[in-house]
Amino acid sequence: MVTNLNMSDQDLLSLFKGGDTAAFKMIYERYWQLLYVSACKVLKDEEEAKDVVQEVFISLLNKGATLEINVSFSSYLYTAVRYKVFDYISRKKVRQDHLDTLDNYVSAGNLCTDHALLEKEINDEMEKEIQNLPEKMRIVFELSRKAELSHKEIADILNISDKTVKKQINNAIKLLKPKFINHYFLLF
Rank of each mutant, 00 (worst) to 15 (best):
G18R: 03
D20K: 04
D20G: 09
T21S: 12
A22T: 07
F24R: 12
K25P: 02
M26S: 10
M26N: 10
M26L: 15
I27K: 03
I27A: 06
Y28P: 05
Y28D: 02
Y28S: 14
E29M: 10
W32E: 14
W32M: 12
Q33Y: 11
L35H: 04
Y36P: 01
V37L: 14
V37P: 02
A39W: 04
C40R: 12
C40Q: 13
C40I: 02
K41C: 07
V42I: 06
V42G: 03
L43H: 09
L43Y: 02
E46M: 09
E46S: 15
E46L: 05
A49Q: 06
K50H: 15
V52S: 01
V52C: 10
V53S: 08
Q54F: 10
V56T: 08
V56Q: 01
V56F: 06
I58S: 14
L61A: 10
K63R: 15
G64I: 02
G64L: 00
A65H: 12
L67F: 03
E68I: 11
I69R: 04
I69F: 06
I69A: 08
F73Y: 08
F73D: 01
Y78H: 14
Y78K: 11
T79M: 09
A80E: 07
R82A: 04
Y83I: 01
Y83C: 04
K84W: 05
K84R: 13
V85L: 04
F86R: 04
D87Y: 09
D87K: 10
Y88D: 06
S90F: 00
S90W: 03
R91P: 01
K92G: 05
R95Y: 08
Q96E: 15
D97R: 09
H98Q: 13
H98T: 10
T101V: 05
T101Y: 13
T101E: 13
L102C: 13
L102N: 07
D103N: 15
Y105G: 10
Y105Q: 11
S107L: 15
S107Q: 12
G109C: 07
L111F: 14
L111A: 14
C112S: 13
D114M: 12
H115D: 08
A116K: 11
L118P: 00
E121P: 06
E121M: 11
I122H: 04
D124G: 12
E125K: 15
E129M: 11
I130M: 07
I130S: 04
Q131G: 07
Q131D: 13
N132L: 09
N132Y: 06
N132C: 08
L133Y: 06
P134D: 12
E135I: 09
K136I: 00
K136Y: 00
M137F: 03
I139E: 05
V140D: 04
V140I: 11
F141Q: 07
F141E: 03
S144M: 10
R145S: 11
K146D: 13
L149K: 14
S150F: 00
K152W: 05
K152V: 06
A155D: 00
I157F: 08
N159I: 00
N159W: 00
I160S: 05
I160A: 09
I160T: 02
I160L: 01
